[in-house]
């Protein structure tokens, strides 16, 4: 695990999945816009990582980024006025949008409200 970069290896992508980059981007954007402080972000992410470790989650990037999403949801609810109920509703709207959109076409959100 602790190997220096192999200069002969092909460059690795920075993120394994687009959602990982988007989660970090959203967190950093919310911090930069002042919706939550860098300290609160670090504290909340630290707590989410500690919780993952405590329940025995594997020490992987996947675990790390899932903690990022956990922390993002928690802080959005606590400090950015996005309630869990809002999240559940919007998630259901996205799922409905994906399910009704034919393959290959852009997925558009049409909120039920």
């Amino acid at each position: 695990m602790f190997q220096p970069d192999d200069p002969l290896a092909p460059p690795q992508p920075v993120f394994d999945e687009p959602w990982q980059a988007q989660a970090l981007a959203l967190a950093d954007s919310l911090v930069n816009a002042g919706h939550f402080s860098a300290q609160d972000w670090a504290r909340t992410l630290g707590a989410a990582l500690a919780a993952a470790e405590a329940r025995g989650a594997a020490d992987t990037l996947e675990t790390y980024y899932l903690a990022v999403v956990d922390a993002l949801e928690r802080l959005s609810a606590q400090q950015a006025g996005i309630s869990r109920q809002d999240m559940d509703q919007r998630r259901a709207d996205w799922e409905a949008a994906y399910n009704r959109t034919p393959h290959g076409q852009p997925v558009k959100l049409e909120p039920s409200a």
Partner: peptide, 24 residues
């Protein structure tokens, strides 16, 4: 179904709400 993964949907959910409310 080509539903994105669970974390992808969670991030999409937050991003769309944050944009809609003018947070980003």
């Amino acid at each position: 179904s080509h539903l994105p993964s669970d974390p992808a949907l969670r991030v999409k959910t937050l991003e769309s709400l944050a944009i809609e409310r003018g947070l980003v």
